[in-house]
Design a protein around this nucleic acid. Structure first.
Length: 463
RNA sequence: GGUCCCUUCGUCUAUCGGUUAGGACACAUGGUUUUCAUCCAUGAAAGAGGGGUUCGAUUCCCCUAGGGACCGCCA
């Protein structure tokens, strides 16, 4: 049996959107599950729109989520000569022909079709015309001689059997009149030369598949298997595109979604394995299969992404979580080096209050910032009684040599008794004084996580 | 308009002819708790509609409806 090879073939005309990332993920997962190879092919033949920076961004994005290609990326523009060679071969053995229609002529055909409300399909004018009739002033494009009779069956690994009439596939152009190859030609030649065995791509490529199958057949190449995965839809139910908000990877990483979480979310979007929701990378490789992919498109659900992210935050070991956090802060906030020791040891309780890295960052503000700000609303909570409580607490606290929960508890319990109040009566002013808000971590956690002199400073400032 | 695809709770999905149609997220209620959270428990919530096939259909077939993709000398 031949070794499985899959590929992901984006064009570097913008940042990858998460639909693309999911396609890449499925391809990668399938190849790994089959102990095969995964390749990245950069389809950069659209000179106008392709940019080197996007290529790098794509590679980075894939890496971020854990996908790396086997071997160097394949650059399509470097293979153009091969594509042209095949086009000429096709021309020679009668599977393609020169089309001398002018742009105006094609436009006219399209308009006519629109008026009659019939679908436009190139009228195959030059399919059987003699070269002798060719106008001298027009450079021809090369069209593939598509089958007219019969039908073609695609045994799709996700969608099942799909059969369409051959005459609905037009004689598509494979070489433009400037001599450059078009997508369907290039993709077929590349896939063949790369020995791709399984082409897993979005549903929107289905028609291309029928065109590409004909090229394979005409060249007598072994046909790969195809799997068309349903598209990801927006909440409005339309195909997700780069223009949609919250569609690129950066949209998620900047709010503190971690790669493991997004990977897990994307995996379960349109694919399932029994009732299992959380998959380690190894588990996803182990369980991934094309049969597990659903047939209907799925919508993006932000709260689900956040919830999976929350799961990873709470269950990840704290060293890894801390690494994620520092990297996140470096990329999107301020570096937290100077405060990192306090933050790291506080992760055990900070993480329980956050769904994202940004959430942890926000909750850790009282640790990160030297000075805290108390809103005027919260300031009201610091009335005269509260201030005397703070002063009393400070007095005891300063003498404390060993700051731990037991000792703090003693002080606070005494204050509760003395002032005939409850825990809230003491805890709330303390929290406001130390964090700047009535919301925040537990009092003991706050005090222990701060340096002693910092606690003293803040209590003095507030009381 | 043509071709093709899809249709189970709001969302992601399980079910591969016989289930009280399961899980997860979100939602609601209650409990734990020094606040906000976490955590725990409980609840509400689905087979688009109509025909067949069958002893029996969410599951198989057909029709209808709804949704989507494609229809470039872009990829």
């Amino acid at each position: 049996m031949t070794k499985v090879a899959t590929r992901f073939a984006p064009s570097p005309t913008g940042p990858l959107h998460i639909g693309g990332i999911r396609t890449a993920l499925f391809n990668w997962l399938y190849s790994k599950n089959q102990k095969g190879s995964f390749f990245l092919r950069i389809e950069d033949t659209d000179k106008e729109r392709s940019k080197e920076e996007y290529k790098n961004q794509i590679i980075q994005s894939l890496k971020w989520i854990g996908i790396e290609s086997d071997g160097n990326e394949y650059i399509q523009s470097k293979k153009i000569d091969d594509h042209i060679k095949i086009a000429n071969e096709l021309l020679k053995n009668g599977h393609a022909y020169k089309c001398y229609c002018s742009n105006e002529e094609i436009e006219e055909q399209k308009n006519r079709a629109k008026q009659k409300k019939i679908p436009y399909i190139y009228d195959r004018k030059w399919r059987d015309k003699s070269e002798a009739d060719a106008p001298q002033d027009i450079k021809p494009a090369i069209r593939f001689k598509s089958k007219i009779d019969g039908s073609t069956l695609l045994k799709d690994l996700v969608q099942g059997d799909i059969e369409i009439e051959n005459n609905t596939i037009e004689d598509f152009i494979i070489l433009r009149n400037d001599g450059s190859p078009t997508y369907n030609l290039s993709a077929s030649v590349d896939d063949h030369q790369m020995n791709i065995t399984h082409i897993i791509r979005g549903d929107d490529h289905k028609i291309n598949t029928f065109k590409q199958m004909q090229i394979y057949l005409a060249m007598k190449w072994t046909l790969p298997s195809f799997a068309h995965i349903p598209l990801i839809h927006t909440t409005e139910g339309k195909k997700l595109s780069k223009r949609d908000k919250a569609s690129t990877l950066d949209d998620y990483s900047k709010i503190g979604v971690m790669p493991e979480a997004l990977r897990n979310y994307l995996l379960r979007l349109g694919w399932s394995f029994k009732d299992k929701e959380i998959f380690t990378l190894e588990e996803s490789i182990q369980h991934f299969s094309l049969e597990g992919i659903g047939k209907s498109p799925s919508k993006l659900d932000m709260s689900r992404i956040l919830s999976i992210n929350e799961h990873y935050i709470k269950n990840m070991n704290e060293d890894d979580l801390f690494n994620h956090l520092t990297k996140y802060c470096e990329n999107y906030k301020d570096k937290i080096d100077s405060k990192s020791k306090n933050i790291k040891k506080s992760l055990s309780f900070l993480k329980n209050k956050a769904r994202t890295l940004e959430g942890i960052y926000n909750n850790a503000q009282y640790l990160i910032k030297d000075k805290i700000k108390i809103s005027s609303e919260d300031q009201k909570l610091l009335d005269s009684l509260a201030k005397t409580i703070l002063k009393d607490f400070l007095k005891e606290f300063q003498n404390l040599t060993n700051i731990n929960k037991e000792n703090l508890e003693k002080i606070i319990n005494n204050l509760i008794k003395k002032n005939k109040t409850n825990f809230k009566g003491v805890g709330q002013p303390l929290r406001v004084a130390l964090v700047g808000s009535k919301f925040g971590p537990g009092i003991y956690d706050i005090i222990i996580s701060l340096d002693k002199n910092e606690v003293i400073e803040r209590l003095k400032a507030a009381s």
